[in-house]
Write a protein that binds this DNA or RNA. Structure first.
Lengths: 260, 260
DNA sequence: CCGTCTGTACTGACTAGACAATGGTGCTGA
DNA sequence: TCAGCACCATTGTCTAGTCAGTACAGACGG
């Protein structure tokens, strides 16, 4: 504790670092239970609040999960692939991609999704991307995808109401051939898309909807689909929990600069 | 505090929610100072630790930043674009992209980068991607990019030592025509790349290197560059702080399914 | 007018407790 | 054998303080 003043590193940070390295070197394996708060309190000779601050830091880093009232456990991280590209064209399937994906496939896991459809005034950012007039409404198909009973990601597709009125897009059921196909059949084929990926911490809303453990950041993937004339006809907002996804894509062509 | 038991929402969570909505509706504007812990303690009639827990939650969500000993401030979020695509081919420059990017350009901001080069035993994940033998060494060019004096992202490029020995890649200076060009000149042109994007909380290391505020998640963009015969010649690890980047890319072609 | 010094207001860190809520375990009885 | 119940270990929440470190502002001296 004197070290806190002298060494510039607080006691709780030291405890956190100690536990962190035990996780890194396997002393504390995945899914293993950490010593209890009481144990750590005794072991390091500090107050419980100090131990809790250390544990909170690890929770916020996504390294451990509290499972009250049983204890803290080393977190499991088993991300699945998320490939924006495959939605647009059948992927090239190079050998590298194949080999790489073998580890993280969804084989044998049970998919399930809930769909609900609503007519709403879309949030401002969606309105702007769809170029809607003030007060103009949109149809949103909200889906939560589950894998093995656990929520996996959310997928909210917004369409301007005037484009999809009386189409099957408005029915809250799965559309096997895809909503994009339906849009194309009604005269709105998409030929281009703009993708944006934001990285941030989830809102309490999202925490609840996706049953996120504390310390889980999310990627927010916003995809705007455009007609040949540039009219936006679809905005999709995907929320991808960081602990469950790797976003993957592949590129061809000669690199120009070494910006990466 | 009775509400904590009955209403199922803890006092600190209520305080956090209260502040959250004040931030959302603009009562607390960007860069504004929050009431001090003492104020909040008095205002809500709770102990300081309770107020601190509420504030810590907002910090972890990335909504506010503590600037000791001055107070807590509403966080500023001004992301810049990050476009993996432009590195590979000159971007198509559609009107949509143009318009969209106008808001977030780097105009008038001063770029600067530090470079350091080392010969290292690369981390296991990099070793695997470069298909290195056990014990084989690699050259790493570590860069930290700054904008307006603030660190912006890190960019660590790994090359197998045997491919780049005695090339200018090993000199810790900027290579105007790009490291990829140098590699190509030495017989290792890259024609394909595999990108992976992971979303997670930063390690304490990364927090320090990028001067990250608490509650800032990062995107970890790993790019593996491949020769025509599939040999990996370059692995780049980019760490992109979530509060400073939007990852953007554009796609052409007919969408197939509505997975997004 | 400018530099320095000092006080103050604030967060950071820590202590030492209390009571509530709840999975899990194991015992008991039908 | 199995359902139900009581107990317990453990985290969640909260109180009420102390002391340390520091950016800032205002006073003071040259």
């Amino acid at each position: 504790m004197a070290a806190a003043r002298q060494g510039r590193v607080s006691v709780w940070a030291q405890i956190a670092q100690d536990l962190r390295s035990k996780i890194a070197d396997g002393t504390l394996a995945v899914d293993a239970q950490l010593p209890t708060e009481a144990d750590l309190t005794a072991q390091y000779g500090v107050a419980r609040a100090t131990v809790r601050q250390a544990l909170a830091a690890l929770v916020n880093e996504g390294l451990i999960v509290p499972r009250a009232p049983r204890g803290y456990f080393v977190r499991h991280r088993k991300p699945l692939f998320y490939r924006p590209q495959t939605e647009f064209r059948p992927q090239p399937k190079t050998p590298e991609m194949d080999r790489f994906m073998a580890d993280h496939s969804a084989d044998g896991r049970e998919p399930w999704q809930s769909i609900d459809v609503a007519i709403v005034a879309p949030p401002p950012d969606v309105m702007q991307r769809l170029k809607l007039q003030e007060g103009e409404l949109a149809v949103v198909r909200r889906r939560v995808r589950h894998l093995d009973g656990e929520p996996f990601n959310t997928n909210d597709s917004y369409f301007p109401l005037r484009f999809v009125q009386d189409t099957e897009i408005m029915r809250p059921v799965d559309i096997p051939r895809g909503a994009n196909q339906v849009l194309a059949e009604h005269g709105y084929p998409q030929v281009r898309a703009l993708d944006e990926i934001y990285v941030r911490m989830p809102s309490p809303d999202e925490v609840q909807r996706l049953e996120l453990a504390p310390g889980t950041p999310v990627a927010c993937h916003v995809c705007t689909g455009l007609c040949p004339d540039g009219t936006p006809v679809r905005v999709v907002v995907n929320i991808l929990p960081g602990d469950r996804h790797v976003i993957v894509y592949e590129r061809d062509g000669m690199p120009a600069k070494d910006h990466e």
